[in-house]
């Protein structure tokens, strides 16, 4: 079993041929009441919910993931992180150190 499928969707005793599902555009996934609904994300930021193990396995094999960070633009995140530090630095300097210099204020 694909390791990503195992990690995201869990274990399944049933044997499915995922390629046959991919080749069938009319395939309908049936809900599995015993399967806890999962949210999956793709690189575009789209979200879907899957309600059965086979549906989950199908999407994961197509590149979807349960972890949004997996697809996040890390450069963008890092930029916001640095911007926050810069802002924090000025705020601390302005309010904390000013007060320290002039305790009466």
């Amino acid at each position: 079993m694909n390791l990503d499928i195992y990690n995201i969707c869990g274990e399944s005793d049933d044997k499915f041929d995922l390629s046959s599902i991919a080749n069938d555009p009319n395939f309908v996934f049936e809900n599995d009441p015993n399967f806890e609904t999962l949210l999956l994300y793709n690189s575009e930021g789209d979200v879907i919910s899957v309600n059965s193990w086979i549906e989950c396995a199908n999407y994961v094999s197509g590149g979807w993931s349960s972890n949004l960070i997996y697809f996040t633009n890390h450069d963008e995140l890092f930029f916001y992180f640095l911007s926050s530090i810069l802002l924090g630095y000025f705020l601390i300097k302005r309010y904390f150190f000013k007060k320290k210099e002039n305790p009466s204020l």
């Binding site: 633009n73 450069d75 963008e76 890092f78 930029f79 640095l82 911007s83 530090i85 810069l86 630095y89």
Partner: peptide
């Protein structure tokens, strides 16, 4: 251009500190 902006922000932070 987040990558380059990050570099410039780090540079300014470095100088401020």
């Amino acid at each position: 251009n987040f990558r380059f902006n990050s570099i410039m922000i780090t540079f300014l932070l470095l100088l401020f500190i």
